[in-house]
Each structure stands twice: as C-alpha cells, then as structure tokens.
C-alpha cells in the first residue's frame, strides 16, 4: 500500500486518494487540432521506472497532487501541487 505525503494533510494511506492517471502530459491549446488532442488523451509512455501521476486526495483536503513514483519499487520521489515545478529522476536501474 502506498503512503502518500500530502503537502496539506501529512502522510496518508493510498485508500484516501483517487488515481487520475498520467501527469506528464498537458492539455493542448484549444486550436491544436485532433492529433494533438488524441495524443493527449490516448498516448501513454507506460514507463517501467519513474513516472508522474495525478492522485486526488478525495478523503482529505481534495487537492489534486502530482506524485512522482517508481512503477517498479513504488518509491515516491515527490508529491507536489499541480502548478509546482517537478522533475522526473533518471532511472539508474
């Protein structure tokens, strides 16, 4: 079970959060066209390693959080608010 350090609430069990998928992509500008939107909606890197994901703290502060997590070890690198800068480590493994 993941324990996620919510910047507002402290460390909480994964069960308090709702997963909302890939947080590496950004919604294209309105006039970017179908291809850009299709890439935004459907194309996923599905990395084995570090990945950024949206987790919403639905049972707590209801903040949308960007969690940088290792998909193999489940190690969490950072938990930040959507507008905060974030980095995805390079996996040495």
């Amino acid at each position: 079970m993941l324990r996620i350090l919510c910047p507002h609430c402290g460390v909480r069990d994964e069960t308090e959060f709702r997963y909302r998928g890939d947080a590496t992509t950004a919604r294209p500008a309105a006039d970017s066209g179908e291809t850009a939107f299709a890439r935004y909606v459907y194309d996923r890197a599905n990395p084995k390693g570090w990945h950024a994901e949206w987790w919403i703290h639905v049972a707590g502060c209801r903040a949308v959080l960007r969690v940088v997590r290792h998909t193999v070890t489940h190690e969490i690198h950072s938990v930040t608010l959507p507008q905060a800068p974030f980095d995805i480590p390079v996996d040495a493994r």
Binding site: R18, R20, R27, W54, I56, V58, R62, A63, V64, L81, P82
Partner: peptide, 11 residues
C-alpha cells in the same frame, strides 16, 4: 465533482 475540481485545480 472530481471532474470539476480536477480541471479547476490543474487548468
């Protein structure tokens, strides 16, 4: 509700 909050907070 989540749909609204997600887009409010991210966009």
């Amino acid at each position: 509700l989540e749909h609204l909050e997600f887009h409010r907070q991210t966009l």
